[in-house]
Write a protein that binds this DNA or RNA. Structure first.
Lengths: 206, 206
DNA sequence: AAATGTATAAATGTATACATTTTGGAGGAT
DNA sequence: ATCCTCCAAAATGTATACATTTATACATTT
């Protein structure tokens, strides 16, 4: 079991809420779980820290990130900035088969909406919106920010499913994109993200 | 010598252009240089990868990042987005002693402008502009993006000093900020960043 | 009871040794 | 010359052992 696979497994545990914000991760326990020495575990933890899943401090245990409301607020602000920018670029560069992929992602996310897989489908849908922008680095930054949100959403048990309201936002977004209404699409998305921010902040302590 | 210190030393070598984009970093050579085993060196490399200084691939040598022009372009686009956003927030929240710090940073960067320390002074100045926004995560993202640019600027030997034109931009920026002219300040900054982009892209091969 | 100090246990950091993978060049075929 | 194929050398990955630091429980003091 290599560091990458260990990191991927632990990431799945964190974004699914098995490990919650603030929880400790001990090298020895993880090593035992995967039947390896602590060396690859240390590598895995560094990879996870690089992706923003955990905090690492020298000589101290790894901890699942645990953001204060003000920090969560900043993350959602950044998401609004980057995601609306990506969406605008995507609409300008949109081609025929991009819309096909978006429709497919929308359909798929609607199916997953009522299951515990809703967050995966939601991200796949949004990713399909931003992909035509051809901005790999911006997309990766968005993914990191969304993961940060998702860890807290899962950890605080905020949402069991994708709400009907959010699904309607998705449909409205696709309609706006189809007619290349850049401003309208960006506006819907900004509200969508602001809505998500309120939902999480309302569930957080403090 | 701990991983953090090794990483800091190597980072200085990379941003100063001693190690250039695309260059290999071998664990054994680094370990010998710092008289440690390869274990802390591996940790240092992971830290550097997390900060975007190097690329790491399993079983392959670490390499100083080496971006294609299209990727550099994306980085500057992101800088424009985040830095103007931070500047606007900073102006809205500006307090009296923030301006004192900005003036001091401007004076300091003017002194360093003709030395090889110009890049440090430049960043210190821009950081003083963004600090009043109180957005630590956004500031950190900006720092990462600027470091990426700086590695290529140093590696391609683009600029030996801070130009008079850029110094004037800095003075204009401070004037706009002092009068809380948010749009004007954002506009100057956007042009400033676009100018830097052109300068680097013109010097890059391909 | 709360806070402080202390010893012991437990966790992390690093060196060494060895396994695995990549690399770079020698040699031959096209 | 240029492009393969293959192999030895070199580089990276991992386990084990041990050093160093932190954390926990308990005793002591206020």
């Amino acid at each position: 079991m290599s560091a990458e696979k260990i990191a991927a497994t632990l990431e799945a545990d964190i974004v699914s809420g098995i490990f919650r914000p603030g929880e400790d991760l001990k090298q020895g326990e993880i090593a035992a779980r995967f039947s390896v020495s602590r060396i690859p575990v240390r590598d895995a933890l560094q990879l996870m820290a690089a992706r923003g899943l955990i905090d690492l401090e020298r000589n101290r245990r790894a901890r699942v990130i645990n953001l204060a409301p003000a920090e969560i607020d900043e993350v959602y602000h950044l998401r609004g900035l980057l995601e609306t920018d990506c969406l605008r670029q995507a609409i300008r560069r949109l081609e025929a088969d991009d819309l096909v992929k978006i429709e497919a992602a929308l359909a798929h996310s609607s199916i997953d909406a009522a299951t515990e897989l809703w967050a995966d489908g939601d991200w796949a849908f949004h990713k399909s919106l931003y992909a035509p922008a051809r901005r790999p680095r911006e997309l990766s930054m968005i993914e990191d920010l969304r993961r940060t949100c998702r860890i807290h959403i899962a950890g605080y048990g905020v949402l069991p499913t994708l709400t009907d309201r959010w699904l309607k936002d998705h449909e409205d977004l696709v309609a706006a994109i189809r007619s290349r209404a850049e401003d309208r699409a960006a506006d819907i998305l900004a509200r969508h993200i602001a809505d998500a921010r309120e939902t999480l902040l309302a569930a957080m302590p403090g």
